[in-house]
Design a protein around this nucleic acid. Structure first.
Length: 498
DNA sequence: GATTAGGATTGG
């Protein structure tokens, strides 16, 4: 049986007190100055319930846990914790977010009936909703603190000890305050623009593209910030997988993350944990999500549109986009290009070698030209009876049957170039294919409907890059599937497989 | 009715 010696009285002189056991708490645990409370250093016996008081040196925001409850974590210290040692983490769980404590660094946390746990050789305390109570002291000078019922018999003692802790904490001899910037990990959440090679980091981003292979998945994500170390065709042409945009980060998922990754939909927002950045053989900055040997926590967390982190990224998107574009938060998704990875890649040249209408090729390339050259003309008047799309936006009557035209249809062409910049293949997107490709965007007169026009521009932006703005412009390198290739009136016709 | 949180850094 050892004794505990630390400053207890509210005078500055140190008092040594030998505590005797009481049967209400584990007999090997020692108490702090307050009856039935123990010092943090003694709170080590896994499974025991303890009452503790400590100064908050770190805390997380309140958040929804992956279980049923809301949670927040804090780290507390008291004079029994050795200098240079970490404090004790307390994880608090409550069914309602408002039942969690309002915390900031420097507060004093008083917890009753906290469960001691050992997690990977670290001691932590858990305040479950079954039986634990807590009180946070923000202002020590405040007279009328309302204590939970379970603490009321000790309220006076507790406040005296709190005053002592407060002085201990602010005294010049104690410089531990503020050393705990992160609650448990040194890993940081960063923006793509801050990314450097060789670091572990967390990222909030939108899925731009998903490419599955046998043992891995390549995710292409963006948080709409820009990083010059990311692949850019302008200075490094024909990089395999290197995307044009400096906004897009390639992340390779391994092992158990493959299963989570291949389910991800384009346009969803994710919180990615423990990414590792690196330069690939082309010197592009990329990231990896390695498998976990034993710690089987999810590293890919899907966020919903209302999530605060998601909204933050969307705000960034707004700042980085053209100011004249109007923004509609319900229309953030990127036009879907779904690629069946089971299909072998075929050279564009070989696709064109098929004389008969053929099906299902996968090719790799980028858009280098678009017809028409402005988005307003992507949709033209259409005669339902003749199934004919007119050539002029001003057409009021069908050129064949003279009926009055009320409908519109999309009709536009993209010229793809292979990754080596050698072969090209034209792609015509119209009628039903266009409805699928531009799902949710009705074919309307784009000169008259600004909302649909802006949505169309937004959708196409990630596919087209700066093709329409610049003669030398091009879209990002992508894999796409060709549904059919045929010669029609001497013109090549082809569709996306969707 | 139990669970939730929880770190460090090998490797394709």
């Amino acid at each position: 049986m050892s004794s505990v010696a630390y400053s207890l009285s509210h005078s500055e002189e140190e008092v040594t007190e030998t505590l005797t056991d009481e049967n209400n708490v584990s007999s090997t645990l020692e108490r702090s100055s307050v009856k039935s409370f123990i010092s943090l250093q003694k709170a080590r016996k896994s499974g025991a319930l303890v009452n503790v008081i400590g100064v908050v040196v770190a805390c997380t925001p309140k958040r929804k846990s992956n279980g049923t409850d809301y949670t927040c974590s804090l780290v507390i210290i008291d004079p029994s914790i050795p200098i240079n040692a970490k404090g004790i983490t307390v994880n608090v769980f409550r069914s309602l977010i408002d039942q969690l404590p309002d915390l900031s660094v420097g507060n004093i946390f008083i917890g009753k009936h906290l469960r001691i746990q050992t997690f990977y050789e670290t001691t932590q305390l858990v305040a479950t909703k079954e039986g634990s109570t807590f009180k946070v002291i923000d202002d020590i000078t405040e007279r009328n603190h309302q204590f939970p019922f379970s603490m009321q018999p000790h309220a006076k003692e507790i406040m005296e000890y709190c005053s002592y802790l407060r002085r201990w904490c602010t005294s010049s001899s104690n410089s531990r305050h503020g050393n705990y910037t992160s609650i448990t990990s040194s890993r940081k959440r960063i923006k793509i623009q801050e990314l450097l090679p060789g670091i572990f980091f967390d990222l909030i981003a939108e899925i731009v593209m998903v490419c599955s292979a046998e043992f891995k998945v390549d995710l292409y994500v963006s948080d709409f910030t820009e990083n010059k170390l990311l692949g850019n065709r302008e200075y490094r042409p024909n990089t395999p997988y290197g995307l044009y945009s400096r906004n897009i980060l390639q992340i390779t998922l391994w092992d158990e993350h493959v299963e989570d990754g291949e389910k991800l939909q384009i346009g969803t927002f994710v919180h990615l944990r423990n990414l590792h950045s690196k330069r690939n053989t082309n010197d592009d900055l990329v990231a990896f999500l390695h498998g976990d040997r034993e710690f089987k926590n999810k590293k890919i967390i899907v966020l919903d549109e209302q999530d605060a982190d998601t909204r933050n990224v969307l705000e960034q998107n707004e700042r980085s986009s053209c100011p004249e574009l109007e923004h509609d938060y319900t229309e953030q998704s990127i036009t879907r290009i779904i690629c069946d990875k089971e299909i072998e890649i075929t050279d564009i040249d070989d696709i064109k070698g098929y004389s008969e209408p053929a099906n299902l090729f996968r090719a790799r390339g980028r858009v280098i030209s678009v017809i028409p050259s402005n988005f307003e003309d992507f949709s033209q008047p259409y005669c339902h009876r003749c199934n004919k799309i007119m050539h002029f936006i001003g057409c009021e009557n069908c050129t064949k049957c003279s009926r009055e035209l009320t409908r519109f249809k999309y009709k536009f062409g993209l010229l793809f170039e292979d990754e080596h910049g050698v072969e090209t293949i034209p792609v015509l997107i119209t009628k039903e294919d266009a409805n699928t490709f531009l799902e949710g965007l009705p074919p309307v007169n784009l000169y008259k409907n600004q909302t649909v026009l802006q949505k169309l521009k937004r959708r196409m932006q990630n596919l087209l890059g700066n093709v329409l703005e610049s003669q030398a412009g091009c879209g990002p390198l992508i894999d796409f599937c060709v549904r059919s290739y045929e010669i029609e009136d001497g013109n090549a016709k082809e569709s996306f497989y969707l």
